[in-house]
Simulated scan of single mutants.
Amino acid sequence: MSAALDDTERDESIRMIRDSAAAVAPPGGDLKRVRDLRFKDPGFDRETLRRMGEMGWIGLRAPEGRGGAGLGMGEACALAEALGGGLAPEPLIPCALSAGLLAATGGAGPLDAALAGEMVVLTAWQERADTLDVPGTADAPRRFVPMAAGADLFLVPVREGGKLALYAQPATGAGVAVERTQDGGNVGTLRPSLGGAEKVAGDAEAALAAALDEAALATSAYLLGVMERAFGMTVDYLKTRQQFGRVIGTFQALQHRAADLSMQIALTRASVEAAAASLDGGATGDARRAVVSRAKARAAEASMAVTRGCVQLSGGIGYTDDYDVGLYLRKAMVLANQYGSAALHRRRFMALVPESDE
């Protein structure tokens, strides 16, 4: 479907996606829901995730023939950006990764329930910190599974006969070790137990590599929404806070710092949108991986710089937990390294696009 859209239809599709996101993350709305869910299990609202499934968000990228919407990365990134602005804690990106993986590999088992948001299906692929490699070691712990406390089912890739098979392991009785994250969410460590798991795909390697790249790009867009909203709140503060009888936004030093942050946001937007357009234009192989890495490296570094800068520009109140800007910094701290840190993606980009002597 996505490839058939012309520019006008694509713009309208993206606008509609942004409008629909307001149901979960209203622009400029308060963050009471986010605060109420922090540091509690499962760390998100299952009913809200189910609504996301009903609106087609979990299957946004899945083919129409497999029950998805068949839309492009432009739409997926627009949605992720809007949800980032509202700090939606629901694991939409990890759930979309799993649904897309099932759809691409023909793993019919839990696909319908995953697309509908009725079952929280998370892919447990990572065996060590800061990597996009998937060794598929059968008995190795799978680490850093986002929002694992709320999972119903884990997809576990396992190397078999030179191929990467995919198993569905129920969360019940799985013995997941859960740790809290800075933003009030959680990550889990799963020890695979294939005795009670169902094999849902015989070769998921290519599909998983593509899904991880899309998740990294969607996370970049989420971080773009995080930094843009934090900056907007900070600009509002600079326009109203007075010191020495003047609005502090008129101080030249603060204006210069704000301008630097604004530039970081603009550069991130350009990188994310260019990457989404490249994927929707059919980029494959090294070209696809390179644009994703460029966007994720930019978003990871810029989100930390912008949210830290916003806390500093907000003065003493910015360092209190009650002040909402700090929530955006905490979210950036968690997501900056998810699906690869800035350092990892810079290394991958340079390996894929080496500097030319010409």
Rank of each mutant, 00 (worst) to 15 (best):
R10Y: 14
E12G: 12
S13C: 12
I17W: 03
R18M: 09
A21S: 08
V24H: 14
D41T: 14
P42R: 14
I58Y: 11
G59E: 11
R61K: 04
R61D: 00
A62Q: 08
A62I: 04
R66N: 15
G67E: 02
A69N: 08
L71I: 04
G72K: 09
M73H: 00
A78M: 10
L79M: 11
L83Y: 04
L83C: 12
E90Y: 10
P94H: 08
A99D: 10
G107Q: 06
A113H: 12
V120H: 03
E127W: 02
D133G: 00
P135F: 01
G136T: 05
F144I: 14
F144P: 07
L153Y: 04
V156P: 05
V158T: 01
V158N: 04
R159T: 08
L166I: 15
Y167N: 02
A168C: 08
A171W: 06
T172A: 15
V176Q: 09
V176C: 10
G188P: 03
L190A: 12
S193V: 12
A206N: 05
L208C: 13
A209Q: 13
L212H: 01
A215G: 11
S220K: 00
A221R: 06
Y222G: 09
G232K: 05
T234A: 05
V235S: 15
L238Y: 06
K239A: 15
R241P: 03
Q243T: 13
G249S: 04
A253F: 13
Q255L: 06
Q264C: 08
Q264G: 05
R269Y: 04
V272I: 04
S278L: 07
G281T: 05
V291R: 10
S293V: 10
S303T: 07
S303H: 01
V306P: 02
C310Q: 07
Y323W: 08
L327N: 04
L327D: 02
M333A: 11
L335R: 03
A336H: 11
N337W: 03
N337H: 14
G340I: 09
L344S: 14
R346N: 13
R348L: 13
R348W: 05
F349P: 03
D357C: 09
